[in-house]
Amino acid sequence: MGASSAFHGAAPIDDWADWVRLTETPGVGREAARRLLAAFGSPRAVLQAGSAARRQVVAPSIAEALEALPDELADLLVTTRRWLAAASAEVPRHIVTLGDSHYPAALLQTADPPLMFYAEGRIEQLAAPCVAIVGSRQATPAGLANAKAFARALSEAGMTVVSGLAQGIDGAAHEGALQGPASTIAVVGTGLDQVFPKRHAALAARIGVEGLVLSEYALGMPPLPHNFPQRNRIIAGLSRGTLVVEAALQSGSLISARLASEAGREVFAIPGSIHSPQSRGCHGLIKQGAKLVESAADVLEEIQFPQRAAAVADTEVGAHADAAVEDAVLAALGFEPANLDALVARTGWSAQQLNIHLLELELEGRVSRLPGQLFQRVSTG
């Protein structure tokens, strides 16, 4: 039985424990594990080969580290077996390894595919066409609205949305994608027995039922800072393209974009205000050749989903037509931040009238008040 089979009740006898032991033995690392697998063919063969044979392939310290089973690794195997056994029909659990039938082909085409990963949820999501949506943790209201709207439109068009479960753009992307049939994949930087950030516990649980949560990290792994740049290669690798919604110049989202480009995948960016720090990363990507997108149809056209793109474009045109008769202040505000003086000039209203109406729009969730006495329209799509 393959290592990615769903487990209900007692975990079956298979080779997942050998994979965990190879990948989690202290000091081994992915590069050495790959060399050993190339030389011996399987984790079990690596472990049975003996230290002398392994020293022909890797450093003596690594060869000898695999000779004994450390107590903490023995405990991890027990914990993993219990985790697998606690799966249910609603939330199945899997371990997927290289060579497994469920291992996504898109990841195999990248420079550094994970040797194995843990999965919770709908394993069939790994075979779906995917688009990554990433961006700032300190997102603006407009950025959150864009992430959610793009994700929903892409999911409705049949594209599974991949993101990293972080606060900000990632969370909004997952929420939007869950509203469509193609759902979402969350690639996390912790073990699957933990959720980071904790505020996304309910979202992670929902994705485990309606989508898929993935991690290459063993159970018990805390949210260490270096884990997140590493998991970004999986987000980019699973996807036909990566859409950056908002990003500062030093944003981790730019790592995902770079990795996507290096893997030969498309990179998309949504432009924003030249005055917003959260737009500078996207503008930098566009200058470097990323495709500027204004709608989900733009993304679908580029990744060769033309029939879906046409349908989405029709929907978006209809939505714009419905919004043609709209609030005068919203029309004057447009989609860039503006201050009260600018709105007075555009509408001809008094400052008092505008303040009252802007407060009403803010309470309705249609306008957001930004630092510096600026106002910005919030999409409700």
Rank of each mutant, 00 (worst) to 15 (best):
S5N: 05
A10Q: 14
I13G: 09
D14E: 09
D15H: 12
L22M: 01
L22D: 00
A32M: 02
R34D: 00
L36V: 04
L37D: 02
Q48S: 11
S51Q: 14
A52T: 12
A52V: 10
R55P: 01
V57A: 10
V58P: 01
A65S: 15
L69W: 05
L73S: 02
L76K: 06
T80D: 04
S88A: 11
A89P: 00
E90K: 12
P92Q: 14
V96T: 06
D100I: 01
Y103H: 01
Y103A: 00
P104K: 03
A106T: 15
Q109A: 15
A111D: 11
F117N: 07
G121A: 09
I123E: 08
E124I: 06
C130I: 02
V134C: 01
G135Q: 04
S136H: 07
A139P: 13
A139W: 14
A142Y: 13
L144N: 09
A145S: 14
N146V: 06
K148T: 10
K148C: 12
R152N: 12
T160G: 05
T160C: 15
Q167I: 12
G168E: 08
I169V: 15
A172Q: 03
A172C: 06
A173E: 03
H174K: 07
H174A: 04
G176R: 04
G176H: 03
L178N: 10
V187C: 05
T190M: 04
T190V: 11
G191N: 09
P197F: 11
I207T: 05
E210D: 15
L212M: 08
E216Y: 07
P222F: 01
P223A: 15
L224C: 03
R231E: 11
R231H: 10
I234N: 12
I235W: 05
A236H: 05
G237L: 06
E246D: 08
A247N: 06
Q250M: 04
Q250C: 03
Q250S: 14
S251H: 04
G252F: 00
S253C: 09
L254W: 05
L259R: 15
A260M: 07
A263V: 03
A263P: 05
G264E: 07
R265S: 10
V267S: 10
F268L: 13
A269S: 08
A269W: 03
I274D: 04
H275Q: 11
P277H: 03
R280V: 00
G281C: 10
G284F: 00
G289A: 05
A290Q: 03
S295A: 13
A297C: 06
V299G: 06
V299N: 09
I303M: 08
I303R: 11
P306C: 12
R308H: 13
A310S: 08
A311I: 11
D314S: 12
T315P: 00
V317R: 14
V317L: 13
V317T: 05
A324S: 13
V325G: 02
D327Q: 05
V329T: 09
A331I: 06
L333C: 12
G334Q: 10
T347S: 04
G348K: 11
S350W: 12
S350N: 07
Q353Y: 04
L358I: 06
L359K: 11
E362H: 14
E362W: 01
R366F: 02
V367G: 05
L370W: 07
V378T: 15
